[in-house]
Design a protein around this nucleic acid. Structure first.
Lengths: 257, 257
DNA sequence: GCAAAAGTGTTTAGCTTACACCCATGT
DNA sequence: ACATGGGTGTAAGCTAAACACTTTTGC
C-alpha cells in the first residue's frame, strides 16, 4: 500500500524562538497571573528571547528572574507546550511562586525590569509584523485574577489566552495527583494555608476537616516543623514544610459538581 | 528589593526547528516503537524539518504520513515536549497507531519513504555537526520493543532515549485517566483486545473479569456495535467502537506492585 | 463567654480486589 | 468431552464525603 511518499517541499527555514511565561500565584485567596499591560485594553504574557546558546529552561528562568528577582531554586518552573507560528516558535513555561514572594514584587519594581536591547537582529530574521518578543520596555506588570482573564478571551493578545488556559489547566490538574500545591506556599505553612491554595486554584470550597485528614495522613507530603502559628484568630496551627514526595497516592480529586 | 535587572546579552539568533516522533503501537502483545537504523548499533527516532509556514502539528502529521501512509484522522497525535539545544530546537510528538495498521507497514515500504531533499540550506544555518534531521535516506525503519530500547540507554542516538522515555511514560500515564488505549485498537475491537493493549503498555497482567466490568460500566467509554467475533478459540466476544469520552472517571489505575 | 479556626471520631456510600462461577464456541 | 477465553455475581477491604464534636487561641 505505502510507497514512496516524498512530497516536494521548499527549503527549511530557521525560526525565531521565544519563551513565554505563565506565572501563577495566590493573592488574597485568589489565583492570579502576572501580565504585562501593553496596548490599551490588551495585556500579554511576559516573554523572553533565547539568547546565545541558552537552554530553553534557562531562558525561562532568566526571564523570570529579570521580572521578579526570584531564583529558580525558589520557584517551580516546568515546560507547558510549544506553539508554532510562521517563522516564530513559542515555548511556554509555567512558573508557580509563593504568594508572599509575589507580594514583595510591586508595580514599581516591575516597570523597568522588562527590556530587550534589540541589537544585532539576525539577517535571516524576516519575522512577521506581529513580533511580540521585543520592545517590552515601558510596560507595566500586574497581577490579574485568572478568572477574569479567562472569562474575557479578548483581553489577552496574540494566542496568550490559549497559553494561559493551558497553564491554568495544568496547574489545576497537577494539584490532584502531585504536591505542586506547596509551590504556592512559603517555606513554612499551615494545612489551612495549603487548603486555601487548593480552593483558590480550583475555585471551589473544600471541607477543612477532610482536607486536613487527607494531607496529614499522606506519607511524606508534609513535614512538621514543631513550630505553631500565633497571633491569629482561632486555635494555633502547626507549621509544616514540603515533604519529599512529588506524586500523591491516592490522588486528591477535585469536587465533581 | 528588586530593581533593574537588565542583564547584558548578545543578539538573539534563530534556530533550526525539527520535529521528532515517538510512534508507538502494540504488536504481538508487546509495546514497540518505530525507529530508524542509521549508524551501526545506533538507532534514532524519525524526524522532520519544519518547512515553509507549517504548523508544528502539521509537520508531525506530514512526517508520520511520509513514514507510514497514515492520515492524521486515523492516528492519535499529541505534542510531547520541546528540547532545546544550541541553534537547534526539537519539538517531540507522540503518535499512537493501531497494531493492525502497523502490520501493514513492511520494511520494504519504509526503506525509501524517509528522505530530505536538503536543498537551499539557510545561510544562517551554522548548525552543529550533529545535525540529525537531514540525510535520512537509505535508512531502514523497524519496530523495536520499547522495553529493550529503554533498558539500553546507548542504543538510541542523541537525546532520543530521553524523548522515547518521555513518550512512553506519557502513554502509560494517559491510559490511567483517559481513553487513549483505544488508539492502539482498530475500529472494532473486543474488551479482551483492549485489555491486552493495557497489559502490553503497562507491562503487567490484569484480571480479565475486573477489567471487563470496569470498562464496560464506564459510560461512553465503549459503544457496542452489535457484532461479535467468530472463528477464534473460546466464547465469541462482543465488538465495540471507541466512545465519545476522553477522560475516565474514575481512573483505571496501574497495579502498584 | 463567644467567635473562629484547628483538629479528631464516626457513619455511610462507592469503588476496587480477589475469586467462585457460569456461558459459548472450536477441536 | 474439554480447553479457551468471555462474561456475571459476591464478599472483603479501602477511600472519600458528610458532619457531630472537641480543642485552643484572640477578643
Amino acid at each position: 500500500m505505502a510507497a514512496v511518499r516524498n512530497a516536494p517541499r521548499n527549503a527549511p527555514r530557521n525560526a525565531a524562538v521565544t519563551v513565554h511565561l505563565v506565572i501563577l500565584t495566590v493573592l488574597d485567596d485568589e489565583l492570579v497571573a502576572l501580565v504585562l499591560a501593553g496596548n490599551p485594553n490588551r495585556v500579554r504574557l511576559p516573554s523572553g528571547r533565547v539568547v546565545d546558546d541558552e537552554e530553553l529552561r534557562r531562558t525561562a528562568e532568566r526571564t523570570l528572574w529579570e521580572l521578579t528577582g526570584l531564583e529558580s531554586t525558589d520557584v517551580h518552573v516546568e515546560q507547558l507546550a510549544t506553539y508554532g507560528a510562521p517563522r516564530q516558535v513559542t515555548v511556554a513555561y509555567l512558573a508557580i511562586i509563593p504568594g508572599v514572594a509575589a507580594e514583595a514584587i510591586t508595580d514599581v519594581d516591575l516597570e523597568v525590569a522588562v527590556g530587550d536591547d534589540g541589537v544585532g537582529i539576525d539577517p535571516d530574521d524576516d519575522s512577521a509584523p506581529e513580533d511580540e518578543a521585543d520592545r517590552a520596555d515601558e510596560d507595566e506588570a500586574e497581577w490579574l485574577p485568572v478568572g477574569e482573564l479567562l472569562d474575557n478571551p479578548d483581553c489577552l493578545a496574540f494566542n496568550h489566552h490559549q497559553i494561559l488556559d493551558d497553564g491554568v489547566e495544568r496547574a489545576r490538574a497537577k494539584l490532584e495527583y502531585s504536591t505542586l500545591g506547596t509551590a504556592f506556599c512559603p517555606d513554612e505553612f499551615t494545612i489551612g494555608d495549603l487548603r486555601r491554595v487548593y480552593q483558590a486554584v480550583w475555585d471551589t470550597t473544600l471541607d477543612p476537616r477532610n482536607f486536613h485528614r487527607k494531607v496529614s495522613t499522606t506519607a511524606d507530603f508534609l513535614v512538621e516543623t514543631g513550630r505553631i502559628t500565633s497571633g491569629e484568630s482561632g486555635r494555633p496551627a502547626r507549621l509544616f514544610r514540603r515533604g519529599d514526595v512529588d506524586r500523591l497516592h491516592p490522588a486528591l480529586l477535585r469536587p465533581t459538581d
